[in-house]
Simulated scan of single mutants.
Amino acid sequence: MQELKGRRALVSGGSSGIGQAIAGHLINAGAETAIADLQPAAHASENVYAFQCDITSGAAVDALFTQVSERMGLPDILVCNAGRGIHEKLTEGDPEKWQQIIDTNLLGALRMVRAFVPGMLEAGQGDVVFVSSVAAGQAYPYGGVYAASKSALEVIAETLRLEVLPKVRVTVVAPGVTDTAFFKNTISGFHTAEDIGYGAIPPEEVAGAVLYALCRPPEVSVNHITVRPTLQPF
């Protein structure tokens, strides 16, 4: 099926985990796809481009904009997926690490929006997808900074939706526990999907939710999808 044939997509954090699954679904659906990551993976498929980019750097995002524009053209699908986790007690944690989380999960997405969404508005159409988390708005011990970053991201998403309608659609996809290296790559703290105890969904399920939203008719906007293990209570 080629539901997205003729469209151009950019996925941040697209070389592993959920981002890699989303990029794969976009490619299979026919979209010309660019992947931006700290260590971009090579792809053998046609119409797939890999770019190195640290979204915490404004200069790096500016360079990404130039590179993507020159090689692929401006995207009409932007997936803000890059993010990191942290598991620290607020009275004992490291504020420098907290800043890294905010720079990646929140400001990084804002930099991508500021760089790429104006082109969508000028073209008169586009889609922006934010990969959030069920942690958004859900306080839990040791998760305050991560949850706050995702909660703020969802406020940004809703604000963007109001600012860009009806030309650009905005979707938030909020996964629960997902079977990726997310927990292994947290800045501090340690958890696994197994010790959380709810099971884990494969990243392809999250990617399927993204594709579902993108493939709705232009007059239909899917603004928020939560996808998680059936056993997960929040």
Rank of each mutant, 00 (worst) to 15 (best):
I35F: 12
C215L: 02
L160K: 07
Q39N: 14
L214Q: 05
S12G: 03
R161N: 03
I22C: 08
C80W: 03
V227R: 10
G83V: 03
Y198I: 00
Y49L: 10
G137C: 11
I22N: 05
Q99T: 11
A207E: 11
K89C: 09
I201W: 12
S45H: 15
R114K: 15
G58Y: 09
P229V: 01
F51Y: 15
V173N: 07
T33P: 06
I156T: 11
R216M: 15
G93F: 14
N47A: 14
T91D: 15
E70S: 13
I22E: 05
G197E: 04
L110Y: 06
N81A: 05
M1H: 11
S12H: 12
A41G: 11
Y146K: 03
G124E: 08
I102T: 09
R8M: 08
R216Y: 09
W98G: 04
Q39M: 06
V128F: 12
L214W: 05
L4Y: 10
L106E: 04
E205V: 02
F183M: 03
E194S: 05
G73E: 04
Y212F: 15
N223M: 05
G73Q: 05
V145R: 04
P40W: 13
F234P: 02
L211Y: 10
G6I: 00
P229W: 06
L107W: 09
P40S: 09
E219I: 00
A44N: 15
K167H: 14
R111T: 06
